[in-house]
Amino acid sequence: MQLYLPIAEVSVNLFLLLGLGTIVGVLSGMFGVGGGFLLTPLLIFIGIPPAVAVATQAPQITGLSFSGTLAHLRRRTVDIKMGLVLLAGGLLGSLIGVRIFKWLSEMGQVELLVSLCYVVFLGVIGGLMFIESLNTLRKSRKPGTVKRRQRHVWVHRLPFKMRFRTSHLYISAIPPFAIGFFVGILSAIMGVGGGFIMVPAMIYIIGMPTAVVVGTSLFQIMFVTAFTTILHATQNYTVDTMLALLLLVGGVVGAQFGAIIAVKMKAEQLRIALALMVLAVCLKLAFDLIVTPDDLYSLTVGT
């Protein structure tokens, strides 16, 4: 059944959209990632204009992370104070990200920007994850010393120190603010929540306990993507609510199944599978940038 999307102005198969939402939902439930990094390229592949695909991800991620945040709040695994510092940076980042997005879309370079960001970030993250999970797999086979997590010393020398009770930290507010800011920009121009950057950054740079990392990042993502939605809606007019809600319906259902599957798999296997998937999306996008396109010309209605 075809559905005409009012903002994207394209007619797409309803079941294809629900299916995409569900598949990405299953993956996000399995790996504990938002799945925006998979959904945005997939939406572009099926013919949604890139500007609409990116902007529409924002409300979709808001909804998904809201259900996640609720669950974490109940378990008290959200460091709200840390979340607010990350959020302050995130809101500023989103503001700048949407501005960059608007500016590049007027120049006709949005597609390039989105693709390049994806190739760079997915390549780096996927590569690092792959190497690390291979190492842990190798180490788990032969018994040896477990390396202690290193905390960066420079982080502790910065000014504006704050106490974060839930995370048992007394550190400068600058690193979380900067991380939030950076993720805010990415969220606005890539149509992602940014968990895949924020979670490792919170563990390795800020040194937060793993238990509160996911809840806190979801808390930040929820607010930042809500803000990004409003900015995209008022500045670029590219948020397709109908599309977002359909993807969300598929996504929330899929995520529940994903969570069930995840329990039955080993953590190392999950991480290798996720790393491979991230690398596959990265390679596909890189390939599309390098290979000669079918038609060198493209049209945009208006001037």
Partner: peptide, 12 residues
């Protein structure tokens, strides 16, 4: 924009 966010939150 606000409505989009509200609907997404309600669904979530």
């Amino acid at each position: 924009g606000l409505l989009s966010v509200a609907l997404a939150l309600a669904l979530g």
